[in-house]
């Protein structure tokens, strides 16, 4: 396993008390595999992503294990952690405008991690590699001398991708990497990510609120709700044939990749995600669930293998869902 979360829990301490943002996540990404993580804003996706490189603020309490190539990141000393950052795993952040340093040339920002991690590389060599990376992501090498504000949103996101690949990491985490982009640009950038992932054989953990985007790029998809994984399976199947009412609603909300109309007025799901500080009893999705049964209010469902509809009750180990109804093999949409 390249990356493995074992019972990861992240709790923010704040003025409103303790806010559990991630509540026991078990998840794994194989080398070269692409895993998508979907879920509404606030369900803990970014927290999960930031936990990998221990980039969470001091106010976050983290427990559990995060194994990168078998090594627990949460137990690493600072020196080892810095060495693993960007070489073991790198991140394409959401909002490239703010994630790039506004007063530094792009070439320098791409070359920076190379110089940090490879003591032998000269600045000139690093600059050449930065230019090569820019060309690989579809930008002219001359762009290395530009400042971030001189680029368009899509170009900036390409720069972020080039930067993420600078140290040949085993894993790339892309957090809402295309959310801010126009539909056309979004499709191009997605295409680029998919290409690079297969070309370089890196593992990808792609985060988006848009399940259709994930289904287009990823092998596997995990759906997150209120800090937990509620469903996991092959991406296309999770999208087309959800085994959790929440995934079903997400799929319905984004029928077409990056459809802006759907983004503005998602169909299929009423109500708000629960306040992490005051989670409901039982299944945390129950207040919004149309197919809830009595048991849902009392017990919290585990993430278990579920029978695929139409397969006569045979559980498929590749499909897990945290829903009592799905575990019974019943339909999750009315």
């Amino acid at each position: 396993m390249l990356l493995e979360f074992k019972d990861l829990r992240v709790t923010y301490r704040g003025s409103r008390g303790r806010l559990p943002a991630v509540r026991g996540v078990d998840l794994a990404v194989d080398a070269g595999e692409t895993l998508g993580i979907a879920g509404e804003s606030g369900c803990g996706k970014s927290t999960l992503a930031m936990a990998v490189l221990r980039l969470l603020p001091k106010s976050a309490e983290v427990s559990g294990e995060i194994l990168l190539d078998g090594e627990d990141l949460l137990q690493m000393g600072w020196g080892r952690l810095r060495a693993v950052r960007w070489t073991g795993a790198s991140i394409v952040f959401q909002g490239a405008m703010h994630s790039l340093n506004a007063v530094q040339r792009i070439g320098r920002q791409i070359a920076e991690p190379i110089l940090v991690h490879e003591a032998k590389t000269t600045p000139a060599a690093a600059a050449r590699r930065a230019e090569a990376l820019l060309e690989r992501v579809g930008l002219p090498a001359s762009r290395a001398r530009s400042y971030p504000h001189e680029l368009s949103g899509g170009q900036r996101q390409r720069v972020m991708i080039a930067m993420a690949l600078a140290c040949d990491p085993d894993l790339v985490i892309a957090d809402e990497a295309t959310t801010a982009l126009d539909v056309m640009v979004q499709a191009q950038v997605l295409q680029l990510i998919a290409e690079l992932v297969t070309e370089r054989g890196v593992g990808l953990m792609m985060i988006s609120h848009d399940l259709s985007v994930l289904s287009a790029v990823c092998d596997r998809a995990a759906v997150m709700y209120a800090g937990r994984i509620v469903e996991q399976g092959p991406a296309g199947e999770v999208f087309a044939n959800a085994r959790h009412p929440y995934s079903a609603a997400l799929s319905a909300a984004f029928p077409v990749i990056g459809d802006p109309a759907a983004r503005m007025s998602p169909g299929g799901l009423a109500g708000d995600p629960p306040d992490p500080v005051r989670l409901p009893e039982g299944c945390s999705f129950r207040p919004r669930c149309a197919v809830a049964v009595e048991r849902c209010g009392a017990e919290s469902p585990e993430l278990l293998a579920v029978p695929v509809r139409g397969s006569a009750g045979v559980a498929d180990a590749a499909r897990v869902s945290a829903c009592f109804v799905a575990q019974e093999g019943m339909p999750v949409v009315l």
Binding site: E40, S41, G95, E176, A180, A253, P266, D272
Partner: peptide, 22 residues
């Protein structure tokens, strides 16, 4: 998270800026 229950990512300043920047 947005209070209106829309299941979209809250529009951030980043999005607004990237939208305009081209």
């Amino acid at each position: 998270p947005p209070a209106d229950g829309a299941s979209t990512e809250a529009p951030s300043a980043g999005r607004a800026q990237s939208r305009r920047s081209p």
